[in-house]
Write a protein that binds this DNA or RNA. Sequence first.
RNA 1: GCGCCCAUAGCUCAACCGGAUAGAGCAACGGCCUUCUAAGCCGUAGGUUGCAGGUUCGAAUCCUGCUGGGCGCGCCA
Length: 561
Amino acid sequence: MKDTIVSLLEGAVAALKHQGVLPDELALVIKVDPTKDKAHGDYATNIALAMAKPAGMKPRELAETLIDALPESAAVEKIEIAGPGFINFFAATDAAAQVVAQVLDCGDTFGRSMIGKGEKVQVEFVSANPTGPLHVGHGRGAAIGDCLCRLLEATGYDVTREFYYNDAGAQIQNLALSVQARAQGLGPDDAGWPADGYRGEYIVDVANDYLAGKTVTADDREVSAIGDPNDLDAIQAFAVAWLRREQDLDLKAFGVEFDVYFLESSLYEEGKVEATVEKLIRGGHTYEEDGALWLRTTDFGDDKDRVMRKREGGYTYFLPDVAYHLDKWQRGFKTVINEQGADHHSTVTRVRAGLQALEVGIPKGWPDYVLHQMVMVTRSGVEVKLSKRAGSYVTVRDLIDEVGRDATRFFLAARRADSQLTFDIDLARSQSNDNPVYYIQYAHARVCSMLRKAQDAEQPFDHDLALANLALLESDQEKAVINRLARFPEVVENAAKNREPQQVAQYLLDLAGDFHTCYNAVKVMVDDDATRNARLSLGLATRQVLRNGLDLMGVSAPEEM
RNA sequence: GCGCCCAUAGCUCAACCGGAUAGAGCAACGGCCUUCUAAGCCGUAGGUUGCAGGUUCGAAUCCUGCUGGGCGCGCCA
């Protein structure tokens, strides 16, 4: 419908240019939006407002001229000029209702598109170091990142989900020492406990499994314990595998799967870190000071230069980061999105600066970043800070166990990434109307129930009869649902383009609301076959779109509640 | 002190990269179950979009300066 209007307008402008009414060189800016208010029709355009000045006409005058020049179309019932010069389009009821047929015809693919043309996109998210179970922040990253991937897949991109982690640095050393201490029977408050050791209960489990000689299998590795409490390297390898498995289980429970696990250590093993340093030195963007090797990132927009190689010879995390992103680029990803917590936002300019300094043709603003703000968890109005298992933070598993996967995913992805999030456990677990997840799922279950009813009454859905009578869907409530359904593809496209999964969540709430309203206002199971089937088809289409939308969020669509 | 993000109804949040009278839910108040799931619906009330300027036909949205909050400012990741 929207496309129809756009092409109608293009036709009108072309005709007017041809007649010399409008100057040939006039730039064309056509924006057609769905209206908020039914009184303004179904779609409106501001074209007359936007082009009035360059066209040298008054907005309303231009609007009138445009309308007169508009080609005929059966899809448009009425056109009005309103306000300062908006042109409002009223869709023919029959044409609008065709979206129902379209939804039923497309099924699971309704809302999907090929905008991405199969282009490769990589999304890196979660990327937690294997030092503990995933916490809520990782959970938000997982929910947003995975939802983004689903959106990109739905819009025709070839998506790679990637998880990057450091399996070698100081933090891992610290982890090994903590496990060793536990293996020796020490607790966090005993003498001899490593400074900054990991205090969580899970460290005890790691130590016990290590001593017992167990074998752990994670998504990207399998390690058997040696059991020798003095072999720190063996402990480290075992602990990393153990926590990788732990995180895998967290992710699995959350319904998130990765295509690639990328190890920071592999960058060293394959000489990519060395190669990156050399390239940067050759490029003349480095200098030595205080015994360290610096990169002049200030040449590329950073506020201070950064150390690449420490005085004692080791590299800072910054350098492997650059090497890693160079590797992404070399793997052919023109689009890379990094989903991270905003507490790491300082790496953005730094990594981009490092990539520019390499001078290998990487575009300036590459890669893209989606940064999410902090998550606070509350119960009974009080902030929850501790998890027994993890020690100092609330884990993803805690949330899934307590409120379920659907609510956890929905709550973590339903807010804009750049606003702080309060995760209210009481709300998420409440099986009541306060809970948006239930509100949406209930709408889905209601349609299913309606269909069961139709079966039981031996009045099963008649597809052909329904489609022949879509014009009978003429109440305001039905039209509202129809219009909402028609907008779904656009919402998916926008959410993907802007990297804003919360738009899908909001849409689903709106659609569920429209449906509930309609459900109460318009009885479906009426005696008249034509009417009943037309209404059933609207229910079916709603169910389909709810399902498609929920699927984009990784949330289930239950048949009954 | 510097940098990034945020500020919308009493509360939690929307508002589709500038559009018409800023929308939902919760909380409050009043209605709707012998009829398809009341986990729902209808209605009432609730706003100077933090403050002050600016840009233009038009601003919650863009710019500047404030105020308040979060995060960051390691040769940690």
